[in-house]
Amino acid sequence: MKALIQRVTQAQVTVDNATIGAIDQGLLVLVGIDPDDDAPNIHKMAHRLLHYRVFADADGRMNLNVQQVSGGVLLVPQFTLSADTRKGLRPSFTSAATPEHGVTVFSSLVEAVKQRHPRVETGQFGANMQVSLTNDGPVTFLLEH
């Protein structure tokens, strides 16, 4: 599993011109699912997302996590994160999870994060989504299991 996290001042996801998920300050998380992702990966990633320290403390240092700043979490499935881009001029998606496995793992990740944090929004698995955000910093990290 890969999670591209971005510290944002706001982010939203729209599908068919309707906003389906939006947050103010918090984390926009683009999630790529791999074929071998399972329950331990899901719980480890949920923990890391909520405890990764990317928000500034009183001294301006990244010492606070999204829970400590009462931020939102916007989880967006993005299978392209699992693409193999090591050669050629076109991505290969043979390394990505099947859609069936992907939706199961993504749904489980959403539930795991929601059980630990009250402010969670999501994109829609398999939909053509438009994601807009204001990256704060910019601060962006790739978390992998």
Rank of each mutant, 00 (worst) to 15 (best):
I33V: 15
V139I: 13
V54E: 04
V139Y: 01
L64A: 10
A18V: 14
Q68Y: 00
H51A: 12
S82V: 00
D34V: 01
R53E: 13
S132G: 09
P91N: 03
N128Q: 13
Q130E: 12
D34S: 13
A83G: 13
S82A: 15
P40E: 14
P99H: 05
T80A: 05
E100L: 07
H145C: 11
F106Y: 12
V103L: 06
V8F: 11
E111H: 12
K114R: 15
N135Y: 03
G137C: 07
K2N: 11
V131D: 01
R90P: 06
S108I: 01
F93D: 10
G123F: 00
D84S: 11
H51E: 15
A18M: 11
I23T: 12
A39Y: 09
S70A: 13
G21E: 02
H51F: 04
P77C: 02
S70H: 14
T122F: 01
L142F: 08
V29T: 03
M1D: 01
G60S: 14
H117I: 07
V73A: 12
T140K: 01
N65F: 00
T98Y: 04
D36R: 08
K87R: 15
D59G: 11
G126W: 10
N135C: 11
L64K: 14
P91Q: 08
V103Q: 08
T14H: 02
D84L: 14
R90V: 02
S92D: 12
A56K: 15
P40W: 10
G32H: 05
R48C: 08
R86K: 14
V15H: 08
V8T: 11
V113K: 00
I5S: 00
E144V: 11
N17Q: 15
V13H: 03
L75S: 08
L75P: 02
G126P: 12
N135R: 07
D24V: 10
K87V: 10
V120W: 00
R7E: 09
M62D: 02
G32A: 12
H43W: 05
R116Q: 15
A18Y: 11
Y52G: 03
